[in-house]
Design a protein around this nucleic acid. Structure first.
Lengths: 188, 188
DNA sequence: GTCTATATGTGGATAGAC
DNA sequence: GTCTATCCACATATAGAC
């Protein structure tokens, strides 16, 4: 429940960007969705580039908080990994949406420099977190056959984003689950 | 070397779509690139939707031919898989580009129905081909630890497209290689 | 098949009143 | 903070001459 217009705009823009790409929505779309005139949006985000920056920064912070939250709740590596897979499962929304990082990567050329850097920071953060999970998985034995945590971590983010992409292509949630099957089977 | 205008337009449009998304280029861009006026493009592709269909069909046929070509040349499963990984490696062009399937999946909502169906056929074709490769890999022993060819096949396409997406995000070719490391190590 | 010229809509963005 | 009104650039697309 957004209490203010700015948050409502960010929520609307994030939904739009994740389902149609950054070039796939306009201020007119947001205006219709939120219920104000498009000129009013410029009061909150003078240029669309400013909106892109705000979206990516909020997303970075939100996922960072999700990592911390999971670490605090789940002591076992398999449970941590499972919880993050669930974050990506919910994010792809049955094949209607991508995570913001994947959506923005395609639209790269339309995005201002600060957003590119924020994407880079986001990926580093997530890969580092996944690496810590696989290291723990090797130690606590809750994930099978972990011989190389760093490369497991490098692979899992592309796999999750690629699975979202596959599901998005046909709006078919099954296409998100199938690619993850082997990984899920390694968890105990 | 395209001999005719239509092919030149398809080549230019494919480059543009793969690096900027389907919403990220216009007939004006193609006109400038190919060296004709934008009105002339409508003679070859009346609407942009027609162009999208032609692009996806050509891509489907080209990758289908690549699968056949690899099967004809490489008897070993590991060599076949390696050859297809190389197709995707070349396609991502050092982080400047995606495969057409990944690029179109993000822009899904802007695309006409025939293109969506063609993407679906494309994915089925590729997953079936990868499944045949992993089955062969289990039989000839050239790919280690293949216990479930169908799920391996379901995972490899998202992994390749996700790796392209990662590399694209930062225009960094290393981000394509790292996620594939574990898979490459299984090949002998 | 390609051109000029043009139609029509929509994009992001600004000025200034309330 | 939101509005109306407007600007200008660019999008896809068409008509008709060459």
């Amino acid at each position: 429940m957004p209490v203010n217009t700015k948050t409502a705009l960010l929520n609307s823009a994030e939904r739009a960007a994740r389902s149609r790409g950054f070039d796939g929505f306009s201020y007119a779309d947001l205006a219709a969705d939120v219920g104000i005139r498009k000129a009013s949006i410029h009061h909150h985000f003078p240029a669309k580039a400013d909106l892109a920056v705000a979206l990516m920064e909020r997303y970075h912070d939100r996922l960072g908080a999700a990592c911390d939250d999971i670490d605090g709740k789940e002591p076992r590596a398999s449970a941590r990994l499972s919880a993050m897979i669930d974050v990506y499962r919910r994010a792809h929304d049955g094949g209607k949406s991508l995570c913001l990082c994947a959506a923005f990567s395609t639209s790269r050329e339309s995005l201002p420099e600060p957003v590119i850097q924020c994407i880079s920071r986001f990926r580093s953060m997530m890969v580092a977190w996944f690496a810590s999970v696989f290291e723990l998985g090797r130690a606590d034995g809750s994930i099978a056959d972990v011989h190389d945590p760093a490369h497991e971590a490098a692979a899992i983010l592309p796999l999750l984003e690629g699975a979202q992409l596959a599901a998005r292509a046909e709006e078919n949630p099954e296409l998100f689950e199938k690619p993850l099957h082997l990984m899920l089977q390694r968890m105990r």
